[in-house]
């Protein structure tokens, strides 16, 4: 049986207490919430923190607050996000993203904050210690070479969070709290395109909540590509949020991609292109081409990388057609294998 390494254990009851522990223990301490990312990683010895600081008992992390927008505690499970009527009705793309993370059990355990902070993934990295020894390790952990791109000085492990691209398209922010204070960061600015140092969050900071802006007038959607209808991380995530005028003209549009780089990111040019246009087939195709040109999948996850790039335009098309109001249920069923 795969087993965890030895670790110390702390279980604070408040954010302040947790922040204080992190400040005291330094980088050898790690936060654990649902554990669905960290526990497998620890079993494979990717991370071997001396201390685990559990956020389970921190009630503040589990609030849902309505205001102008919606504030969601980072400790809410993905199932709780999916069960939230406010999320489902106002932030459809985010709801669809959350509903497609991993599997039902993993959504029952995994948290919103955990999905946003998900470790980057790579088929040369997400392996046991023994396997990684057989390739003399890799740049991301214990080695010197990136086996995906041997000339690369940067780790190209892929961002695999579903919720982040959706939240980026919706203009959401997160709150980061440490013993020194707190700050707000747009989800779009939370990530760096570096497979190792992929978050702007500092080790002593706790991601405590996600703040969604008012969504009046916006329509959003998320299309996830993965091999199976369950379990699999995305090999492409297309999130779109569009504000349409009464006549169907695009007032604002934000298109974001996931799983095609070490970070999820906004394709500004795609949104700018759509602004002032109607969602005609031609405009959708052009937007698809613009967005596709920004996707840089690598050979470090499931499915053929050239194919993954080839289909980005089609997935942008599915997203924008759904926003236009086309009946995409049959296509959704074929891709996601469930109604969303």
């Amino acid at each position: 049986m795969m087993r965890m390494p030895w670790f110390g254990w702390q279980s604070p009851a408040t954010i302040a207490e947790a922040a204080k522990i992190l400040a005291g223990e330094g980088p050898q301490a790690m936060l654990i919430a649902g554990g669905t990312d960290l526990v497998p990683n620890m079993k494979r010895r990717h991370q071997t923190p001396a201390t685990l600081v559990s956020l389970r008992r921190v009630a503040e992390l589990r609030k849902i607050a309505n205001g102008a927008g919606l504030t969601l505690g980072a400790g809410l499970t993905l199932t709780e996000i999916v069960d939230s009527a406010a999320v489902r009705e106002k932030y459809r793309g985010f709801w669809q993203a959350a509903a497609q993370v991993a599997s039902p059990h993993l959504r029952n355990m995994g948290t919103l904050g955990g999905n946003l902070c998900l470790d980057t993934r790579c088929t040369y990295y997400n392996q046991s210690l023994e396997w990684r020894k057989a390739i003399d390790y890799c740049l991301k952990k214990d080695g010197e070479t990136c086996w995906v791109a041997t000339a690369s000085k940067r780790c190209v492990a892929v961002s695999s969070t579903d919720s982040a691209p959706a939240l980026i398209s919706l203009g959401a922010k997160v709150k980061l709290v440490s013993a020194q204070g707190e700050r707000e960061v747009a989800v779009a600015d939370l990530y760096k395109n570096d497979g190792i140092d992929y978050l702007v969050r500092k080790p002593e900071e706790i991601l405590t909540e996600v703040v969604l802006p008012d969504a009046q007038g916006w329509r959003s959607t998320y299309w996830k590509l993965r091999r199976r209808g369950s379990f699999d991380f995305p090999v492409l995530g297309v999130a779109a949020a569009v504000k349409l005028a009464a006549d169907g003209t695009v007032e604002q549009a934000r298109l974001a991609l996931g799983a095609v780089a070490s970070r999820p990111f906004l394709v500004d040019k795609g949104g700018e292109f759509l602004k002032g246009r109607k969602l005609t087939d031609e405009a959708i195709a052009e937007a698809g081409a613009i967005v596709a040109s920004r996707a840089k999948p690598m050979d470090n996850t499931d499915l053929d990388l050239y194919w993954r790039k080839d289909v980005v335009g089609s997935f942008v098309g599915h997203a924008l057609r759904e926003i236009r109001g086309d009946d995409m249920r049959a296509m959704r069923m074929r891709i996601a294998r469930q109604a969303l």
Binding site: M2, R3, G34, G35, V39, P40, A102, M109, F231
Partner: peptide, 24 residues
């Protein structure tokens, strides 16, 4: 699998199905 990839270890915790291989 002990890595949360198969569901064989599912138990109910407070009525919810969880993976006992990932639950400390």
């Amino acid at each position: 699998c002990e890595l949360g990839e198969c569901g064989a270890c599912a138990v109910l915790v407070d009525g919810e199905p969880l993976l006992s291989c990932l639950e400390l």
